[in-house]
């Protein structure tokens, strides 16, 4: 990432900004990892796709706060992520739910069937329920990111014509 823009406030503010940005940069990947870990471990331990999605969304939110909306959006290429999360997540979840119907089984029949052998990769299990959880993750992540994105866009639009002080007060 390039050198961040400094805020328009006082010197102390600038230092603060630099600190925030550094912390944000450091935290970004671990936060995403946490999210994915929560997702993968969902069947074995506390947590599921929903939690994972919100955590991942918060990781991005941190970047927005630290780097400002425009820059973070550009650098992280988040423009289409909400739409992908929404569409991909819901479709994936829907498919796991409805494909069994095409195979002549009731809705939401997961495979392998109850009691059958499951391939384990660590605590991660290869079952269709996990695919469903990934769908949940994507959708929730899409929502978290999208909602923040839309509000942030509204903010920048709202304050585009305002004075610098107002912009400062706004963020």
């Amino acid at each position: 990432m390039t050198e961040p823009k400094t805020g328009s406030g006082a010197k102390g503010g600038a230092t603060m900004t630099v600190m925030t940005q550094t912390i944000a940069r450091i935290l970004f990947l671990p936060a995403l990892m946490t999210g994915i870990a929560v997702l993968i471990k969902g069947y074995a331990d506390v947590g599921d796709g929903f939690n994972a999605g919100v955590i991942a969304g918060l990781a991005f939110l941190l970047q927005y706060v630290a780097f400002g909306y425009e820059e973070a959006r550009e650098k992280l290429r988040t423009k289409y992520l909400p739409a992908i999360g929404f569409c991909g997540g819901l479709l994936l979840a829907l498919l796991t739910a409805f494909v069994p119907l095409l195979l002549g089984k009731p809705i939401f029949t997961h495979s392998p069937a109850p009691g059958a052998e499951v391939i384990h990769i660590g605590t991660f299990e290869l079952i269709t329920a996990v695919a469903f959880d990934v769908g949940v993750f994507l959708m929730v992540f899409g929502f978290a990111l999208g909602a923040i994105d839309i509000v942030a866009r509204a903010t920048s639009r709202n304050h585009a014509g305002g004075s610098a002080e107002e912009r400062e007060a706004g963020t």
Binding site: Y43, D45, V46, G47, H110, P112, A129, D133, V136
Partner: peptide
């Protein structure tokens, strides 16, 4: 249903 976390399995399987 291959799970340890009963709440998650309810969410993803029983009451998906």
């Amino acid at each position: 249903a291959h799970a340890n976390d009963i709440v998650t399995v309810i969410l993803a399987d029983f009451r998906g």
